[in-house]
Simulated assay, not measured.
Amino acid sequence: MSRSLYSDHASGDTAAAGHLSDRAFLDAVLEFERALADAAEDTGHISPAAAAAAREAIDGYTYDVADIAAASAAGANPAIPLAAALKQRATDTSGIHTGATSQDAIDTALALCARRAVGEIDRVLSEVEKLLEQLARTHRDTPVMGRTLGQQALPTSFGLITAGWFEGVRSSAARLRETAAALPVQYAGATGNLVATHPDGIAVHDRLAQLLGLADRPLVWHTNRQPFVDVGLAAAVVAGAVRKIAGDIIAYSATEIAEVAEGSPGGSSSMPHKANPAAAVACDGYARRTPGLAATLLDTLDCRWQRGTGSWHAEWQTLRDLLAATASAVSRIHTSLDGLQIRTDTMGERVAHDNLGHAPEITDIILEGDRS
């Protein structure tokens, strides 16, 4: 379950990572258990006394992450020792883990963590969009040499280049928000038929979704892993969009080109003359991790019978690491763009003519596109 402390902190913004830590994950399992007691009481499936006993046990429970991790080995997931500890504390156990299976708790907890992390990623993406829009408007008519297949091509505008960056971020961010908003609650019981809470099971499920602010459909997705794959792939596309920007900034910053420079470049331990585009380089490094993680999530779609054997277990760290890597890439591209120096004189020296074609108009069309 453990995640990378260095990787999170080196990104400069740990807000998203804070929702993806082991403790956040386990806290979300307890959040599920408490909301389940409330939902079961609200629908009349358990008594107010049983719900009160459950809440008292959950609210007063403290745990050690390392202890839970060690105890998880026996059942292959952390919800089992957590539920056992709560039942041990409760004076009435009928309100603890009512009608649930461990996958219900784990999936719902991961959905909560993912949605909260995406909220933080989206916050920074909004700032990235603002920086890119400002660059595009400022340099709408700034001529720069276009380059294709590694060679100089024809002139274009730097505004159109940055508008292209903006468009990639805007569209991928919208898809990430959409998939996060669609993350559902999981509550279906041991084999997905809610038999343990019949005839109240569906009512409990829907009330639980309402209490946790998660979608209530699909009703059962124990072996339908598309909700997590969707949000993971959307995050990987965001990482790809900002990696494109990072790659261009690195290329434009090369000594032989020197058309842009980061506002606070990085140095070298052995070459004091260097001014490295360190934030863009770090963005590239974080983003490069996401395709492999996304591929692992795609592999989890092979989820057999009524419970995944290994495929489900592979999701927990993979999705959290993918979202954390995306958050770090987004944070680093924000740092790279904030204060980015545009050397218009150097750009102009390489342009043989200033006929930009429709570049300024295309820039306007991109910037004024649908932002919903």
Results as ranks from 00 to 15, higher is better:
F228H: 10
S172D: 03
G150S: 06
V242R: 09
A71V: 05
G339Y: 04
F228N: 06
P277C: 10
G266V: 08
D248R: 09
R343A: 10
I365H: 13
L367A: 10
A261C: 07
A181Q: 11
G189S: 04
L86M: 14
V238Q: 03
M145E: 09
P143M: 10
R3N: 00
D59I: 05
A105R: 06
A215F: 08
G292F: 00
A182M: 06
P291R: 00
L233K: 00
G18A: 10
A261V: 02
V229S: 05
A279C: 05
D38Q: 13
W221P: 12
P218E: 12
Q103W: 05
P265T: 09
M347L: 07
L340H: 06
D321G: 05
D59V: 05
E33N: 10
K130T: 15
E262F: 11
H205N: 06
R140N: 03
Y252D: 09
H19R: 15
D107S: 14
A16E: 00
S7F: 02
A52R: 14
S270N: 07
H198E: 13
E56Q: 15
R217L: 12
S21G: 04
V238D: 02
P265G: 08
V220E: 15
A325Y: 01
R137V: 12
P155N: 10
E368K: 14
A188N: 09
F25P: 03
I161F: 07
F158S: 01
G357T: 08
D338S: 14
Y6P: 03
R207D: 09
A153H: 11
G95F: 07
I333Y: 01
P143C: 13
I342A: 08
T93L: 05
A40M: 01
R34H: 13
A117R: 03
A294R: 04
H97Y: 12
C113Q: 06
R140K: 11
V330E: 01
P277K: 10
D42A: 15
A180N: 02
N276K: 10
R89N: 08
K87E: 13
L208R: 04
L323E: 04
L86V: 07
A209V: 11
A235Q: 03
H353R: 09
I366F: 07
T290N: 05
V185L: 15
P272K: 04
E256S: 13
A37S: 13
R89E: 07
P265C: 11
T223H: 08
A246W: 01
P184H: 06
G60S: 13
V330S: 03
E349Q: 13
C113T: 06
D22T: 11
G263E: 11
S270A: 15
L208V: 02
L20T: 00
A325F: 01
L298N: 08
Y286S: 01
A173Q: 14
S102R: 07
A174Y: 06
Y187L: 15
V144D: 01
A53C: 09
E127R: 12
A153G: 11
R371H: 15
G192Y: 07
D13W: 12
A282T: 03
N355P: 00
A70D: 12
P272Q: 08
A275F: 01
P155S: 10
A236H: 03
A261P: 02
A39E: 06
I250L: 07
M145S: 08
G60I: 12
G150E: 09
V351N: 02
T296I: 14
R175N: 05
